[in-house]
Design a protein around this nucleic acid. Structure first.
Lengths: 220, 220
DNA sequence: GTCTGTGAAGAGTTTCACAGCT
DNA sequence: AGCTGTGAAACTCTTCACAGAC
């Protein structure tokens, strides 16, 4: 088995959402063509993605919506409950606690940390905010699997160091910074500012090409 | 000029942050090697990324921190003020309003929309929430450049349709769904649930390989 | 010696195209 | 006929390696 690419995993997550939707619509079979259309990819891409994990379809008919949904859920570990530690109880952190999609997919925030003495001890949606120094102990006690970092950029690296020391291997980072992690620790970044900057670049590029046929290098 | 890849643009955003940091540290020159190390890429990658836009370095010396920072800001359109419409005044939307990184990079949220009559008319950080039906008018009046969609999945497609009709060409979507847009409209997705699912997959995979040397296909 | 800029090679990902099953 | 599964081809992105500048 080759290593599966991140792109494939991301697409599986997306297919999964379509399958859930199709199942509620009562549709029993779905073709790679139909799934592809919903996700702006080619039918061959859908089939390749799935073929990384086995053969789930029936030639001439397509895939069983229900079976494929369950299979993907299994692959992605969505049947399991993952315990999540949230670090940072600011406005973003608080929003994440209320984000229902997390719980729906089996990601349960079971502990919240901050280093602000004004916040420690307060509650957010039934969870008491703990001091960040208590993190290693609580991670062990509650058997936490992954961490979400929602702190200001300046604090992000030191938080990640604490998480790594506490033995966590999977981190979702919301700070717009590339963070250092030792091998064996996987970090994924959600980066709102960087996404906006990509849009900004396209806006500038589209304005330039509107102004004068060819984009001008010299004008940069 | 070839089309620049999204990956390159994303890395430029990251380099930019490092350059800002280095400038505050008083560092005058930086090599591709040093930038690369900070971002877990190869020095060749850094040089290739920059060479898409011109020649900014000095052989033997590296790049001027200040100049390169300004150049990237220019490429990404960060010198400009972009006017942003936010749709969805729930907990995520409210968090985005307070997210300082946006404003720092020149993305100013100038209007907030929702369809909930309980929210319309209320204020969030000095901005009055408008009814979504007023969006086309306000987008014209304020000359808004891009939109951020922070509404529940079920509402996302209809919101995007409204935005497209109002003439917006650039959309940042937080709903975990692939949305349909006509050609000429660029949509980027920030997808927290999907990122967590990628981590979940790696967790499952790492557990499996720990249990029994080779990953077993049949166990899926 | 140090470091950039870049063509060429290499690696990885996507698409094509068709055999094979229903 | 319709659709999957997959090797091969095409394409894209990354790394190598070295000429050329300081």
């Amino acid at each position: 088995m080759n290593r599966i690419s991140d792109a494939t995993i991301t697409r599986l997550s997306r297919y999964y959402r379509s399958l859930v939707h199709l199942e509620t619509q009562g549709q029993e079979m779905v073709s790679s063509k139909e799934l592809a259309k919903r996700h702006k990819v080619t039918p061959a891409q859908v089939r390749k993605d799935l073929s990384c994990f086995g053969q789930f379809g029936t030639r001439g008919l397509g895939y069983s919506v229900c079976q494929l949904k369950e299979t993907i859920a299994h692959i992605l570990g969505l049947h399991r409950i993952w315990k999540v530690a949230l670090v940072g109880a600011g406005s973003l952190g608080s929003a994440l606690i209320s984000y229902k999609e997390f719980k729906r997919q089996g990601f349960h925030i079971v502990a919240v940390f901050d280093n602000d003495p004004h916040k420690v001890g307060k509650k957010r949606r039934g969870l008491t905010i703990s001091d960040i120094t208590k993190l290693p102990k609580i991670v062990k006690e509650l058997d936490i699997n992954l961490a979400v970092v929602a702190v200001p950029t300046t604090a992000a690296q030191s938080v990640v160091d604490i998480l790594v020391k506490a033995g966590l291997k999977m981190i979702l980072n919301f700070a717009p910074e590339t963070l250092k992690t030792p091998p064996g620790v996987t970090i994924r970044n959600v980066n709102m500012a960087i996404e906006l900057e990509a849009l900004s670049y396209r806006l500038v590029a589209s304005e330039m090409s509107r102004l004068d046929g060819k984009p001008k290098l010299s004008s940069i």
